[in-house]
Nucleic acid binder design. Structure first.
Length: 311
DNA sequence: TACTCTTGCTAGGAGTACAC
DNA sequence: GTGTACTCCTAGCAAGAGTA
C-alpha cells in the first residue's frame, strides 16, 4: 500500500494537477482502444517521456489492464484510490509548506508593512500590497493607484484572469511590455518554490545555491564528488526520480505559489475571475505546444536555464 | 459524504560536540 | 582517529477538524 501511496505523491506534482486519477486511467483506455494521429502521439510522448511519469503510467496501465483481464479485484479497485490518496496528500503537504515559506520570502524581499502573516491567509491577496504586487497581471502597473483600486474593486479593464500571467512569474517581478516573454518563468519566488518542494526548503533559502549543512542538494553533490558511495538523504525529486525540470512541474509550482499568495484558504480551482485549471494548462501549453520552431528553441533554452539552476 | 487543511508524530539522515 | 549521543532538518503518514 505504501508503495502505491508513495508513487501517487508525484502525480499532482509532475503529471496532472487537476485531472482525476480515474480520468487518467480512462484516457489510457481510450488510447489503447483508438488510433490517434501523429500530433497526439508526439504530445503523449513528450508528456510521458520522463522516467517517473512512465512508471506512474505503468501503474495506471496496470489498473486498467488488470481490471479488463480479471475483473475488479481488491487491488485493482483500490489502486486508483491509493494513487489519489498519495497525490492529494502530497499536494496538501506542499500547500502547507509553501503557505509559511512564501510569506517569509515576501517579507524578506519586499519588506511589506505590515508583514505578511505566515499563519493567516485572510490578509493576503490583493488587499495586501506586497501580495497584490506579485499577483498583479504583468501588463498592469501595481504602483498606479488606479490599478490597485480597479483590481480590488474588480472594475472593468482590471479583472484578474488566467489570461494574464501574474508578475511573480517574471524576473525581478517586472515584465517587458514590448516583449512579454522576456524574463517569463524566471521569477525568484517561483524558483524558490520549486526548490522548496522538489529539493528542500533549506535549499530554497539561498537560490544562488549556497545552502547550509541541511541542504540535501549540496550534500548529494558532495557525496557524488567524494565518490565514496555515501548514503545521503534523498529529496523529493530523487524519490520520484525526477531528473529534469519539466513543464508540468513548473506549472504545478506556479499554481501553488499563486495559491500561497492569495487569500483563499482552501484549495479550489476558481479564485474570483481566475481559473487555476486554465492557468495550469496555459503554462503547460506554453512549454509543450510552442507556436513554431523559433518559439520551441526559446522554450528549450528556458528549460535548460531551469535545469542549470535547480539540478 | 467527500474533500481539504492543520497538527503532531515517526523515521531517516547529516552535522556537531565530546569523551576516550 | 573513532565511537557515541544529541540536535536539526526533511518527508511522509495519520487523525481530527472544518467546509462545501
Amino acid at each position: 500500500t505504501n508503495y502505491y501511496l508513495t508513487q501517487g505523491r508525484g502525480i499532482r506534482r509532475t503529471v496532472a494537477l487537476f485531472d482525476s486519477i480515474e480520468d487518467l486511467i480512462s484516457e489510457n483506455d481510450r488510447r489503447y482502444d483508438e488510433d490517434f494521429d501523429d500530433e497526439e502521439v508526439a504530445t503523449f510522448e513528450s508528456v510521458f517521456r520522463p522516467r517517473f511519469v512512465t512508471r506512474v503510467l505503468t501503474l495506471i496501465c496496470l489498473c486498467s489492464q488488470e481490471r479488463l483481464q480479471t475483473g475488479y479485484d481488491i487491488l485493482t479497485r483500490n489502486l486508483p484510490w491509493m494513487l489519489r490518496q498519495g497525490a492529494d496528500g502530497a499536494r496538501g503537504d506542499d500547500t502547507a509548506k509553501l503557505k509559511t515559506l512564501v510569506a517569509d520570502w515576501v517579507n524578506r524581499d519586499l519588506k511589506p508593512n505590515p508583514l505578511v502573516d505566515s499563519d493567516d491567509k485572510h490578509h493576503r491577496g490583493f488587499i495586501n500590497d506586497a501580495c497584490g504586487k506579485l499577483l498583479c497581471p504583468a501588463e498592469l502597473d501595481w504602483n498606479n493607484p488606479a490599478t490597485k483600486a480597479g483590481i480590488r474593486d474588480r472594475s472593468e479593464g482590471y479583472t484578474v484572469t488566467e489570461l494574464s500571467f501574474p508578475s511573480f512569474l517574471y524576473e525581478k517581478y517586472t515584465a517587458n511590455l514590448d516583449n512579454l516573454e522576456a524574463g517569463l518563468f524566471k521569477g525568484q519566488i517561483l524558483v524558490q518554490g520549486y526548490k522548496a518542494v522538489f529539493t528542500s526548503p533549506s535549499s530554497a533559502k539561498d537560490i544562488d545555491g549556497d545552502g547550509d549543512g541541511a541542504d540535501v542538494i549540496e550534500n548529494n553533490r558532495r557525496a557524488r564528488r567524494a565518490g565514496w558511495g555515501l548514503k545521503v538523504k534523498k529529496h523529493v525529486a530523487q524519490i520520484i526520480k525526477l531528473e529534469k525540470v519539466t513543464p508540468r512541474s513548473i506549472a504545478y509550482i506556479a499554481c501553488q505559489v499563486r495559491f500561497a499568495l492569495s487569500s483563499i484558504t482552501s484549495w479550489r480551482t476558481i479564485d474570483g475571475d481566475f481559473d487555476y485549471v486554465q492557468f495550469w494548462r496555459s503554462i503547460v501549453d506554453f512549454f509543450e505546444r510552442p507556436p513554431g520552431r523559433e518559439a520551441g528553441r526559446r522554450v528549450n533554452k528556458l528549460l535548460e536555464w531551469w535545469n542549470r539552476y535547480i539540478f
